[in-house]
Amino acid sequence: MSSPISLQQLHSADGLAALGAAMVQVAEDSLFAYAEPCDPERFAAMLAERDAVEPWLSASVAFKGPFEGTASVSLPRALAADLCGSFCGVSTDELSEPQVVDFAGELTNMACGLWLTHTHRTERFDLTAPHVSAITGAALAGGAAAGACASGIALNDVPIQIALHPSASEGGG
């Protein structure tokens, strides 16, 4: 088995860009949505235009293999509901909160799995069940969690954030 890849490699711009590319593909293939990476200035401007107390969902999936860590996707709850409706072919009004939460987790699972498959096809990773928590846009505007690297994506012109976090052991926590 090869040596674990360093945290620096995990957090490289290439790694985050590849996760972003996976997110774009998930959006286009499964959600019939348009997504594109956006630079920090545009992302900050898009965030600033939204209500600071708007409910968001932050979903994370931990992965373990030749290297390990956690990938997360944070998006406005309203966008998650819209995308969930497109994904399942049902009206947004018909969706329950647990269904929207479930979808946010599966969205993150697909993006993380696709990223790892595209960039490390010959290696095996185990993914945990997604963990989804409720946050606000203000929490996101405060910056990525300590030790994480993050970038923004415009999905149907709505900001979402993707991030990579070190594992607890790598992060020293």
Binding site: M110, G113, L114, T117, R121, T122, E123, R124, F125
Partner: peptide
């Protein structure tokens, strides 16, 4: 039907 498309799997 999985996100994991690794050759190993």
């Amino acid at each position: 039907i999985s996100t994991d498309g690794s050759e190993s799997r």
